[in-house]
Amino acid sequence: TLFEALYDYEARTEDDLSFHKGEKFQILNSSEGDWWEVRSLTTGETGYIPSPYLAPV
Rank of each mutant, 00 (worst) to 15 (best):
Y7G: 07
E32I: 12
F3P: 00
N29L: 05
W36M: 05
D8H: 06
E45M: 14
H20N: 10
L54F: 07
R12D: 10
E32P: 08
V57P: 05
E23W: 06
G44S: 05
K24R: 14
Y9L: 04
S40C: 08
S51E: 05
D16M: 14
Y48G: 02
Y7W: 14
K24D: 00
E32Q: 14
Y9D: 01
Y48Q: 07
Y48C: 11
F25A: 00
A11F: 03
E14L: 12
G47P: 00
G22Y: 05
V38C: 09
E14C: 13
G47H: 06
D34K: 08
T43M: 01
R39P: 00
S30P: 07
S30H: 09
P50I: 04
E45R: 14
F3L: 06
P50W: 15
T43H: 03
A11P: 06
L28I: 12
E14Y: 10
Y53A: 15
F25P: 00
H20L: 11
Q26M: 13
L41M: 12
L6T: 06
L6P: 02
G33A: 13
I49N: 00
S51I: 06
L41H: 05
Y53K: 08
G47M: 06
V57H: 07
D15K: 15
F25Q: 00
T42R: 13
N29S: 12
K21E: 05
I49T: 03
E32M: 14
D15S: 14
S18C: 05
T1M: 14
L41C: 14
S51H: 09
R39Y: 08
E10D: 10
H20P: 04
A55P: 05
Y9M: 04
Y48K: 12
T42M: 10
D16W: 11
S51L: 06
T46N: 05
E10N: 10
D34M: 13
Y7T: 08
W36C: 03
A55R: 10
I49E: 00
T13Y: 15
G47C: 04
P52Y: 15
E4Y: 14
Y7C: 14
K21V: 09
E10S: 10
G33W: 10
E23I: 03
W35S: 07
G47A: 03
W36F: 07
S18D: 04
L17N: 02
F25H: 00
G47E: 00
V57M: 08
D34S: 09
T43L: 01
W35L: 12
